[in-house]
Amino acid sequence: MNRIATRLLPRNQIYSKYPGIQCVIHKALPFFFIRTYGIPKKNKLPPRPLWLIKEEELEEEFIKGGRGPGGQKINKTNSKVQLRHKPTNIVVTCQYSRSQEQNRKKAREILALKLEELENPEHCRTAVLKERESKVKQNKMKKSTRKYKKIEEERQLQKEKEQELLSEIVDIDSELDTLVTSAKQKVDNR
Protein backbone atom coordinates (compact mmCIF):
# COMPACT_ATOMS: atom_id res chain seq x y z
CA MET A 1 0.00 0.00 0.00
CA ASN A 2 2.59 2.48 1.09
CA ARG A 3 4.63 1.97 -2.00
CA ILE A 4 1.63 2.45 -4.30
CA ALA A 5 0.75 5.60 -2.50
CA THR A 6 4.20 7.08 -2.77
CA ARG A 7 4.32 6.21 -6.44
CA LEU A 8 0.98 7.85 -7.14
CA LEU A 9 1.97 11.08 -5.49
CA PRO A 10 4.57 13.62 -6.50
CA ARG A 11 7.65 13.55 -4.36
CA ASN A 12 6.99 16.84 -2.59
CA GLN A 13 3.74 15.60 -1.08
CA ILE A 14 5.49 13.05 1.00
CA TYR A 15 6.29 14.74 4.25
CA SER A 16 7.17 13.81 7.69
CA LYS A 17 5.29 15.23 10.61
CA TYR A 18 7.11 13.29 13.26
CA PRO A 19 10.81 12.72 12.79
CA GLY A 20 11.46 9.17 11.73
CA ILE A 21 7.90 8.39 10.61
CA GLN A 22 6.98 8.84 7.01
CA CYS A 23 3.43 10.01 6.33
CA VAL A 24 1.56 9.95 3.06
CA ILE A 25 -1.26 12.20 1.96
CA HIS A 26 -4.06 9.97 0.75
CA LYS A 27 -5.89 12.49 -1.43
CA ALA A 28 -5.06 10.67 -4.64
CA LEU A 29 -6.42 7.37 -3.39
CA PRO A 30 -10.02 6.19 -3.68
CA PHE A 31 -12.06 6.37 -0.48
CA PHE A 32 -12.20 2.65 0.31
CA PHE A 33 -8.42 2.37 0.12
CA ILE A 34 -8.12 4.72 3.03
CA ARG A 35 -10.84 3.09 5.05
CA THR A 36 -9.01 -0.18 5.09
CA TYR A 37 -6.46 1.48 7.37
CA GLY A 38 -7.51 2.60 10.84
CA ILE A 39 -10.58 2.02 12.99
CA PRO A 40 -13.69 3.80 11.69
CA LYS A 41 -14.47 6.69 14.04
CA LYS A 42 -17.59 6.28 16.16
CA ASN A 43 -19.00 9.65 15.18
CA LYS A 44 -18.26 9.09 11.48
CA LEU A 45 -20.23 5.88 10.94
CA PRO A 46 -22.75 5.73 8.10
CA PRO A 47 -26.14 7.02 9.33
CA ARG A 48 -29.04 4.75 10.33
CA PRO A 49 -30.80 4.16 7.01
CA LEU A 50 -34.31 5.10 8.16
CA TRP A 51 -35.18 6.42 4.68
CA LEU A 52 -35.52 2.80 3.53
CA ILE A 53 -38.62 2.40 5.71
CA LYS A 54 -41.87 3.02 3.90
CA GLU A 55 -44.86 2.73 6.20
CA GLU A 56 -47.12 1.33 3.45
CA GLU A 57 -44.77 -1.62 2.95
CA LEU A 58 -44.96 -2.64 6.59
CA GLU A 59 -47.24 -4.94 8.48
CA GLU A 60 -47.16 -4.17 12.18
CA GLU A 61 -48.36 -6.45 14.92
CA PHE A 62 -48.41 -6.02 18.68
CA ILE A 63 -47.93 -9.25 20.54
CA LYS A 64 -49.24 -9.19 24.07
CA GLY A 65 -48.49 -12.79 24.83
CA GLY A 66 -51.09 -15.50 24.56
CA ARG A 67 -54.77 -15.86 25.29
CA GLY A 68 -56.39 -15.73 28.71
CA PRO A 69 -57.99 -12.84 30.51
CA GLY A 70 -57.42 -9.21 29.54
CA GLY A 71 -58.23 -5.74 30.77
CA GLN A 72 -58.14 -5.12 34.51
CA LYS A 73 -57.94 -8.85 35.23
CA ILE A 74 -54.31 -9.19 34.25
CA ASN A 75 -51.35 -6.91 34.31
CA LYS A 76 -49.03 -7.50 31.40
CA THR A 77 -45.56 -6.06 31.35
CA ASN A 78 -44.36 -6.84 27.86
CA SER A 79 -45.21 -5.07 24.65
CA LYS A 80 -43.54 -6.86 21.80
CA VAL A 81 -43.68 -5.28 18.38
CA GLN A 82 -43.38 -7.38 15.24
CA LEU A 83 -42.74 -5.83 11.85
CA ARG A 84 -43.02 -7.61 8.52
CA HIS A 85 -41.58 -6.01 5.40
CA LYS A 86 -43.98 -7.17 2.70
CA PRO A 87 -41.71 -6.96 -0.42
CA THR A 88 -38.85 -8.94 1.12
CA ASN A 89 -40.76 -10.87 3.78
CA ILE A 90 -38.25 -9.95 6.48
CA VAL A 91 -39.70 -10.24 9.97
CA VAL A 92 -38.29 -8.22 12.85
CA THR A 93 -39.40 -8.29 16.49
CA CYS A 94 -38.47 -5.96 19.30
CA GLN A 95 -39.19 -6.01 23.03
CA TYR A 96 -36.21 -3.99 24.16
CA SER A 97 -38.21 -1.55 26.24
CA ARG A 98 -41.43 -1.64 28.30
CA SER A 99 -42.86 1.13 26.17
CA GLN A 100 -44.60 0.14 22.98
CA GLU A 101 -43.73 3.43 21.33
CA GLN A 102 -40.02 2.94 21.87
CA ASN A 103 -40.23 -0.65 20.70
CA ARG A 104 -41.90 0.49 17.48
CA LYS A 105 -39.09 2.95 16.84
CA LYS A 106 -36.41 0.40 17.62
CA ALA A 107 -38.02 -2.27 15.41
CA ARG A 108 -37.98 0.16 12.49
CA GLU A 109 -34.30 0.89 13.06
CA ILE A 110 -33.45 -2.81 13.07
CA LEU A 111 -35.48 -3.43 9.92
CA ALA A 112 -33.81 -0.51 8.17
CA LEU A 113 -30.37 -1.93 8.96
CA LYS A 114 -31.40 -5.32 7.59
CA LEU A 115 -32.72 -3.77 4.39
CA GLU A 116 -29.51 -1.83 3.89
CA GLU A 117 -27.55 -5.00 4.42
CA LEU A 118 -29.46 -6.57 1.53
CA GLU A 119 -29.03 -3.56 -0.68
CA ASN A 120 -25.41 -2.78 -0.07
CA PRO A 121 -23.72 -5.57 1.85
CA GLU A 122 -20.18 -4.15 1.72
CA HIS A 123 -20.57 -0.57 2.83
CA CYS A 124 -23.70 -0.70 4.99
CA ARG A 125 -23.76 0.48 8.60
CA THR A 126 -23.78 -3.02 10.05
CA ALA A 127 -20.73 -4.04 8.00
CA VAL A 128 -18.83 -0.95 9.11
CA LEU A 129 -19.88 -1.58 12.70
CA LYS A 130 -18.68 -5.16 12.51
CA GLU A 131 -15.42 -4.06 10.95
CA ARG A 132 -14.99 -1.49 13.69
CA GLU A 133 -15.69 -4.03 16.37
CA SER A 134 -13.17 -6.54 15.04
CA LYS A 135 -10.56 -3.84 14.58
CA VAL A 136 -11.05 -2.51 18.09
CA LYS A 137 -10.66 -6.06 19.35
CA GLN A 138 -7.52 -6.58 17.29
CA ASN A 139 -6.09 -3.35 18.57
CA LYS A 140 -6.79 -4.34 22.14
CA MET A 141 -5.10 -7.69 21.59
CA LYS A 142 -2.13 -6.00 20.02
CA LYS A 143 -1.84 -3.57 22.89
CA SER A 144 -2.13 -6.25 25.53
CA THR A 145 0.44 -8.52 23.85
CA ARG A 146 2.78 -5.58 23.53
CA LYS A 147 2.26 -4.70 27.17
CA TYR A 148 2.89 -8.20 28.44
CA LYS A 149 5.87 -8.63 26.15
CA LYS A 150 7.35 -5.49 27.65
CA ILE A 151 6.66 -6.67 31.17
CA GLU A 152 8.22 -10.05 30.37
CA GLU A 153 11.29 -8.40 28.92
CA GLU A 154 11.69 -6.20 31.97
CA ARG A 155 11.39 -9.22 34.19
CA GLN A 156 14.05 -11.00 32.18
CA LEU A 157 16.37 -8.04 32.52
CA GLN A 158 15.76 -7.87 36.24
CA LYS A 159 16.59 -11.54 36.56
CA GLU A 160 19.82 -11.16 34.64
CA LYS A 161 20.82 -8.24 36.82
CA GLU A 162 20.09 -10.20 39.95
CA GLN A 163 22.10 -13.08 38.66
CA GLU A 164 25.01 -10.75 38.00
CA LEU A 165 24.73 -9.28 41.44
CA LEU A 166 24.58 -12.71 43.00
CA SER A 167 27.68 -13.80 41.18
CA GLU A 168 29.46 -10.71 42.43
CA ILE A 169 28.64 -11.38 46.03
CA VAL A 170 31.44 -13.26 47.75
CA ASP A 171 30.65 -16.02 50.14
CA ILE A 172 32.88 -15.28 53.13
CA ASP A 173 32.66 -18.73 54.73
CA SER A 174 33.71 -20.66 51.66
CA GLU A 175 36.44 -18.11 50.94
CA LEU A 176 37.74 -18.57 54.45
CA ASP A 177 37.58 -22.33 54.07
CA THR A 178 39.56 -22.29 50.85
CA LEU A 179 42.10 -19.93 52.42
CA VAL A 180 42.47 -22.14 55.44
CA THR A 181 42.84 -25.29 53.35
CA SER A 182 45.38 -23.66 51.02
CA ALA A 183 47.32 -22.39 54.04
CA LYS A 184 47.23 -25.85 55.56
CA GLN A 185 48.51 -27.32 52.32
CA LYS A 186 51.33 -24.81 52.26
CA VAL A 187 52.24 -25.65 55.85
CA ASP A 188 52.10 -29.36 55.08
CA ASN A 189 54.34 -28.94 52.05
CA ARG A 190 56.96 -27.28 54.15
Binding site: G68, P69, Q72, K73, I74, N75
Partner: peptide
Amino acid sequence: PVTLEGVARSV
Protein backbone atom coordinates in the same frame (compact mmCIF):
# COMPACT_ATOMS: atom_id res chain seq x y z
CA PRO B 1 -59.36 -19.00 39.40
CA VAL B 2 -57.41 -17.60 36.47
CA THR B 3 -58.25 -20.53 34.22
CA LEU B 4 -61.96 -19.78 34.60
CA GLU B 5 -61.83 -16.16 33.44
CA GLY B 6 -60.62 -15.08 36.88
CA VAL B 7 -58.16 -12.46 38.04
CA ALA B 8 -54.39 -12.95 37.85
CA ARG B 9 -52.61 -13.64 41.11
CA SER B 10 -50.44 -10.53 41.14
CA VAL B 11 -53.50 -8.36 40.49
